[in-house]
Computed example of a mutant assay.
Amino acid sequence: MKVPKAGALVAVVGLALTASGCGGDSGPKGNLSIGIKFDQPGVGLREQGGTFSGFDVDVSTYIAKQLGYKPEQIEFKRVDSSDRELLLQYNEVKFVAASYSINDKRKEKVDFAGPYFLAHQDLLVRADDTTITKAEDLNNKKLCSVTGSTSAENVKKTLAPKASVLELDGYSECVVALQDGLVDALTTDNSILAGYAAQKENAGKFKLVGLSLSNENYGIGVKKGNKDLQGKINAALRKMVQDGAWEAAVKKNFGPANYKNEPAPPITTGS
């Protein structure tokens, strides 16, 4: 084994100190890729100009900070309901915060942190519609939902078996179809529906029926087996509730729609 000369040894030590971040930024290097929805006002929305807004965006940003990342290191990537598991499995994103309801089928493919929000499935109809006041009224009517979502399946299976279902790629497309009279209702979580109803361009056009057809516990999806990240995210979520940031994010994103949210749910996944 060759022993380096004194000058070389000093250089090696100096290089090691620099690499270890001694005296500098000790945070994680590189970007943190996070999967969110791009088309859900109040939840996850890509604004004109490339900025992002919504409750899931605020939760993700808070988690990223607790993990040691700076805002400029966050890279938001679009996820659709049908490809959330794939993006995690192929390491396209580190975690997914995209109105991602925890259920047993999804837990076979990914692990969840949380839950961090409790929503309820509801119906969005045109403001002048007086024919739909309950889910059973959807029999012989047209219902819109998003490909990969379980919402329409829940309604058609148990409540309105004669309803016809139109599946589109995104909720924005469903809102347009509802406005144009191509469908009679849109179903998904009330938090998402409230976000659309609260948009300035939709003022007076739509209304929520006000149902609680299911309990939707939103979780943060991580790659199956990544217990370390799951635990760190759970710790961040607990802190967000404790320091008031969670409640502030709820009021900021859902308050304008007069949305009555549930309290922060207890975390039941991982540790």
Rank of each mutant, 00 (worst) to 15 (best):
1 M>G: 13
3 V>Q: 10
5 K>R: 08
6 A>C: 02
9 L>P: 00
12 V>P: 02
13 V>H: 02
13 V>Q: 03
14 G>W: 07
14 G>S: 14
16 A>V: 09
17 L>M: 11
20 S>C: 06
21 G>V: 08
21 G>H: 01
21 G>E: 10
22 C>R: 05
24 G>Y: 08
27 G>Y: 01
29 K>N: 08
29 K>L: 14
34 I>C: 09
34 I>D: 04
39 D>G: 00
42 G>C: 03
43 V>A: 11
49 G>H: 04
52 F>G: 02
53 S>C: 10
57 V>T: 09
57 V>W: 01
61 T>L: 05
63 I>F: 06
63 I>W: 02
64 A>D: 05
68 G>D: 13
68 G>C: 14
71 P>L: 00
71 P>G: 13
72 E>A: 12
72 E>T: 11
73 Q>W: 05
76 F>N: 09
77 K>H: 14
78 R>L: 02
82 S>L: 07
83 D>G: 07
83 D>E: 10
84 R>F: 03
89 Q>D: 08
91 N>I: 00
91 N>R: 05
91 N>E: 11
96 V>D: 02
97 A>N: 15
99 S>C: 12
100 Y>H: 15
109 K>G: 00
113 A>H: 06
113 A>Y: 05
115 P>Q: 00
115 P>E: 08
117 F>A: 10
117 F>Q: 09
119 A>Y: 07
121 Q>R: 09
122 D>V: 00
122 D>A: 02
126 R>G: 02
126 R>E: 10
127 A>K: 15
127 A>M: 11
127 A>R: 12
128 D>W: 02
130 T>E: 06
131 T>R: 13
132 I>R: 05
135 A>S: 12
135 A>W: 04
138 L>S: 10
139 N>R: 05
142 K>D: 06
144 C>Q: 04
148 G>V: 04
150 T>L: 14
151 S>H: 14
152 A>E: 06
154 N>E: 06
154 N>S: 00
154 N>T: 04
156 K>F: 06
158 T>M: 09
160 A>Q: 12
161 P>L: 05
162 K>E: 15
163 A>Q: 03
169 D>T: 15
170 G>W: 07
172 S>R: 15
173 E>D: 14
175 V>Y: 13
176 V>T: 15
177 A>N: 12
177 A>F: 10
179 Q>W: 03
181 G>H: 10
184 D>S: 05
185 A>H: 08
185 A>T: 00
187 T>P: 03
190 N>T: 09
192 I>R: 09
193 L>P: 15
196 Y>K: 05
197 A>P: 07
197 A>S: 13
197 A>V: 12
202 N>K: 08
206 F>T: 05
207 K>Q: 04
208 L>F: 07
209 V>W: 11
209 V>T: 08
213 L>R: 07
213 L>I: 03
213 L>C: 07
214 S>K: 10
217 N>A: 11
218 Y>Q: 13
220 I>W: 07
224 K>Y: 03
227 K>S: 15
228 D>L: 12
228 D>K: 15
231 G>C: 03
233 I>F: 06
235 A>M: 03
238 R>G: 11
240 M>E: 04
241 V>L: 12
245 A>T: 08
246 W>G: 13
248 A>Y: 01
250 V>A: 13
256 P>G: 09
256 P>V: 09
257 A>S: 13
257 A>D: 12
258 N>L: 07
260 K>M: 11
261 N>Q: 06
262 E>C: 01
263 P>A: 00
265 P>V: 04
269 T>G: 00
269 T>Q: 13
271 S>P: 01
